[in-house]
Design a protein around this nucleic acid. Structure first.
Length: 642
DNA sequence: TAGGACGACATTTTT
DNA sequence: TGTCGTCCTA
């Protein structure tokens, strides 16, 4: 263990060895936050805490795995001993034990975003569907989700996010109620319910609450600045017994208020825990002093925050570049040619990233990168487990696990050609009448028109065949190679690559022996599909990403573009001081991703059919940074007769 | 039921 | 400029 401590600086060491009790660790960008959390856990175990009594909460599965793997690597602890994972996952596990107390079946269904929207659509139809003033199901779901996550009343949220729909607030309230009723009737929870119902469980059944509060002697929370009101409450409830709570975060990097992150949680922490010790990690191991200077000057403009300064450890590098271009195309052209230069100098593509506020900002760039043959990946797009074919197969498994899963029945019935919404409804109703016995599928075939009947028979056949199988992987293989599987795949164009995805899913499933285990793992996973270009050079590929998705990552060279008013900061986000500060934090996150070189690009003019020719004003985030800490580049115009 | 036509409208996203 | 959702019709 002493060997471990030797790798920490004095700031980190203080946090790692903090006395039991409440502690707030303000970990600036690049200051070794992950390291501190993992060493802290090891430290606790080394001082005699039973790993089983440590709870580590994170936001993403990736972060959870990273930390737990490192702890295992450092401390020689058997995997799975520490209870760790995302808020949703931990709540899910708790609710699986106590769902009945909350009026839900033991095998409650979990609705992902798409499922939730579908259920909401049903509620809308029921209500007559009309006139929520431009609010679509997705928008409605967002408001309802915010209401749950922030504990704020619906009218207030409407005022803020959809003022035009404010007159319909009462309808929204009804909708919220009918959505809740419908979920209850289905025996289903959405992602928000996992958090919200767990909080309710703990408060309404204090005996259950104290069961967990007793158990977790130490609670650690990562990315605390991104916790919502509900999550903050959950943390408090879980730590109420032992009060050994270490929250780690960086208020400078809070960029998720639009989805309910409650900035106040981290600012108020010392008030809620008056004995809390505050630790600051300010030594930055990532970036050059020149880059940190820009970050520091930027964030200084914000008011509501814990003041802190990034202190450079690394030696000096080039000044960050400020690159004006005449047009968006010129801007893209500069980036592409600069990347070519960097490549020629030996920088690997995987060490370069382009960060932007919104995906559409990368349009011209993608065109030119493609033209130049520079391989790149866009970190976005459909998640693996949200793809139709994956969800279809998983739906079959979900039915085997819980035959009352109406959502999944609906899903697989709609796969059949000749069966649509109406038939699906009829079949599900009749299945319900039969108590959702799988045998009943055969009995209710009379509800299916002659057109859909052959496909329906294929489904019956499959269900009969797989009901005896229990290994998840074998199940997937069987479904994939069945007639139904063929139907499912060949209604899409790229059936072959979809089949490959499912083979991959079957491989992944090999590590699970029970359906339940596999399904609950899947439900809360979210891997991206990255269509990686072929890596001919061995240099990897260029990364294009939004700033939001770049959080926690780093590259040697970072470009950012469209640094003009209205784009970055985004016009739609501005409204008040809080919004402006969050946009500024977004810029701060952008800057602090760069290790060695930073290019800040912007176009002076642009043309669009909607707005015509536009002169742009340099982003306030650049204007408020001193001239002396940036180097202004001149771009040679490609076409000077333009 | 499913496919085509037409109109609305363009952030950020994890689980 | 294009995608998405909705409505209408075969």
């Amino acid at each position: 263990m002493d060997k471990l401590y030797g790798k920490l600086n004095s700031e980190q060491l203080l946090a790692v060895r903090a006395e039991p009790g409440a502690a707030l660790v303000i970990a600036a960008a690049g200051s070794g936050k992950t390291r501190v959390v993992t060493y802290r856990v090891c430290h606790l175990i080394a001082s005699g805490v039973d790993p089983d009594r440590i709870l580590l909460l994170t936001f993403t599965n990736k972060a959870a795995h990273e930390m737990l793997d490192r702890v295992e690597g450092l401390g020689g602890i058997a995997p799975g001993q520490i209870v760790g994972g995302t808020f949703h996952r931990v709540c899910h596990r708790i609710l699986r034990k106590h769902a009945e107390l909350m009026g839900f079946p033991k095998k409650f269904i979990l609705l992902d975003q798409e499922d939730a929207r579908d259920v909401l659509k049903l509620c809308l139809e029921e209500a007559g569907g009309l006139g929520l003033h431009g609010l679509k199901p997705a928008g409605i779901h967002r408001i309802l989700s915010l209401a749950v996550n922030t504990d704020r009343p619906i009218p207030e949220l409407l005022t803020e996010f959809a003022p035009a729909a404010l007159d319909y607030a009462f309808m929204m309230e009804d909708l919220a109620a009918s959505y809740a009723r419908r979920k209850q009737a289905l025996g289903a929870m959405d992602f928000d319910d996992l958090l919200w119902q767990t909080r309710r469980l703990f408060t309404q059944h204090p005996d259950v609450g104290s069961l967990y509060a007793q158990r977790f002697q130490h609670v650690l929370v990562d990315e605390y600045q991104d916790t919502s009101k509900v999550q903050g409450d959950l943390v408090d409830l879980l730590a109420q017994q032992h009060k050994n709570l270490m929250v780690v975060g960086d208020d400078f990097q809070s960029i998720y208020s639009f989805r309910g992150a409650h900035f106040q949680n981290i600012l108020d922490f010392p008030n809620r825990y008056p004995d809390a010790k505050i630790y600051r990690l300010q030594y930055n191991y990532r970036s050059t002093p020149e880059i940190l200077a820009v970050a520091n000057q930027t964030i200084e403009q914000n008011v509501r925050q814990y003041p802190k300064v990034l202190k450079a450890i690394r030696p000096s590098g080039p000044l960050p570049a400020l690159v004006p271009a005449s047009t968006p195309n010129e801007q893209a052209h500069f980036i592409v040619s600069r990347i070519s230069d960097l490549m020629a100098q030996g920088t690997a593509l995987r060490e370069i990233a382009i960060l932007y506020r919104s995906h559409y900002h990368s349009l011209e760039l993608q065109v030119q990168l493609t033209r130049e043959g520079i391989p790149y990946v866009v970190r976005s797009g459909v998640r693996f487990f949200e793809q139709a074919h994956v969800k279809d197969v998983v739906a079959v498994l979900r039915i085997l696990f819980n035959t009352r899963d109406e959502i999944s029945w609906g899903r697989i019935l709609k796969v059949l050609p000749g069966v649509g919404k109406v038939t699906t409804g009829k079949v599900v109703d009749r299945l319900r009448g039969h108590g959702f016995q799988i045998d009943a599928l055969e009995k209710v075939k009379t509800s299916v028109s002659a057109r859909g009947r052959p496909a329906y028979q294929k489904l019956c056949l499959l269900m009969g065949e797989i009901r005896e199988i229990s290994e998840p992987s074998k199940l997937i293989q069987t479904i994939l190679h069945s007639d139904f599987g063929e139907l499912m795949l060949y209604r899409h164009k790229n059936a072959k690559s979809r089949a490959e995805d499912l083979e991959q899913l079957a491989d992944y499933a090999l590590r699970f022996h029970y359906l339940e285990e596999f399904l609950s793992d899947l439900a809360l996973l979210s891997g991206m599909v990255e269509d990686s270009p072929e890596d001919h050079t061995g240099d990897g590929w260029l990364t294009l990403t939004t700033v939001h998705q770049a959080k926690g990552l780093e590259w040697s060279v970072v470009f950012t573009l469209w640094l003009v008013e209205g784009r970055f900061p985004s016009a739609r986000s501005l409204g008040g001081l809080e919004e402006e500060e969050e946009e500024r934090r977004l810029f701060y996150v952008t800057v602090t991703r760069a290790k060695d070189e930073l290019y800040l690009c912007y176009p002076l003019t642009s043309y669009s059919s909607r707005q015509g020719a536009t002169q742009h004003r340099l982003s306030r985030f650049i204007r408020e940074v001193g001239d002396d800490i940036l180097e202004r580049w001149e771009v040679v115009q490609k076409n000077w007769y333009l």
